[in-house]
């Protein structure tokens, strides 16, 4: 079965693709799929790289043979297939780049599959040095951003049935912004929450999951603080946003009057697993604050 990708691919338009590939009862539509990338002609947002990679892994994990029909790689940097080739997407999924001259852009941290059980080496030797070079700040000032990544990866480790996180990051200098998308193709956040609260819809379950102090207690030491810590740091300290797409639910967390504005939506399709996209401003000061401070219990 041949599946045409949408002309534009981002968090919203991905559901058009997902509806074509995943049935209502959440199974692949066919045992053999050809993904036609030539129809992806207008643009792809950075999170699209993660979405496509996650989808292919989800399908293959369910025994589907996935063939990729690549599009033309033009020399224009804003061509979606060129962006994917520069991001090493085709190298990872086809075994080679479409164009031998394609190379990872300086502002891109290419697609990586990170083992959430032990990501410290990747964080210390790949992610943080890359971000440090992009922003021109010493690695130790990126400690809070590294903690945000740890919160997501700990969440995958503790709650997903698959402990690999697919990560892609893009620095956008003109917007003073860094976009990071992380996806897993595990059971999805609503699945675990609904075990405890079956009355909640999937979007309500995601909102519940980020509530401070709410834990599904999948692991004995979990206390429901990780996603709240992530969102507080990114949205308040980083003047940014966090979007969570999981199964049929969407949660957006944005900064409004220096507080977190939560908004939930029903998705028009089924995202297999969880996609988290976070964005923070590189000119926000608090997220880079590592000021030393004496500790007192009574402050």
């Amino acid at each position: 079965m041949k599946i045409d990708l949408p002309r534009r691919l981002n968090r919203d338009s991905m559901y058009t693709l997902l509806q074509k590939v995943i049935t209502r009862d959440r199974n692949p539509v066919s045992d053999e799929l050809v993904l036609n990338f030539s129809t992806l002609s207008k643009f792809i947002e950075p999170c699209g790289v993660t979405i496509l990679s996650n989808l292919i892994h989800w399908l293959e994990n369910r025994g589907v043979t996935v063939d990729i029909l690549p599009g033309e790689v033009s020399r224009w940097e804003d061509s979606p297939n060129k962006f994917l080739d520069d991001s090493m997407f085709f190298e990872q999924h086809l075994g080679e780049k479409l164009n031998e001259y394609s190379q990872v852009r300086v502002t891109t941290l290419p697609l990586q599959h990170v083992n959430a059980k032990d990501p410290t080496g990747w964080l210390s030797y790949k992610f943080t040095p890359w971000l440090s070079r992009q922003l021109g700040v010493p690695p130790n000032r990126l400690a809070t951003i590294q903690v945000c990544m740890e919160e997501i990866l700990n969440n995958i480790k503790d709650h997903a049935d698959n402990t690999t996180g697919c990560v892609f990051a893009q620095f956008i200098p003109g917007n003073h912004e860094v976009l990071i998308s992380i996806s897993d193709f595990g059971v999805g956040i609503p699945y675990n929450v609904q075990e405890k609260h079956p009355e909640l819809t999937e979007k309500e379950a995601i909102r519940k999951a980020v509530e401070r102090g709410f834990s599904t207690q999948t692991q004995p030491y979990n206390r429901g603080f990780g996603l709240d810590n992530l969102i507080s740091n990114v949205v308040l300290n980083g003047k940014g946003s966090v979007y969570i797409h999981s199964l049929n639910g969407i949660l957006s967390c944005q900064n409004g009057n220096n507080s977190i504005q939560y908004k939930t939506n029903d998705a028009f399709g089924h995202y297999p697993g969880t996609l988290i996209e976070l964005a923070f401003k590189t000119n926000a000061e608090d997220i880079f604050d590592i000021e030393e401070e004496g500790f007192s219990w009574d402050d």
């Binding site: 809070t144 102090g213 206390r223 604050d289 590592i290 000021e291 030393e292 500790f295 219990w297």
Partner: peptide
């Protein structure tokens, strides 16, 4: 715990997280 456990060589970020976690847990 307050009388017998203290933290040094710390940062604002670490202090805030520790105090916030304990405060929430005590209230709960």
């Amino acid at each position: 715990i307050k009388e017998n456990l203290s933290f040094v060589d710390s940062t604002k970020a670490i202090n805030n997280t520790i105090k916030s976690r304990f405060s929430f847990e005590i209230d709960e």
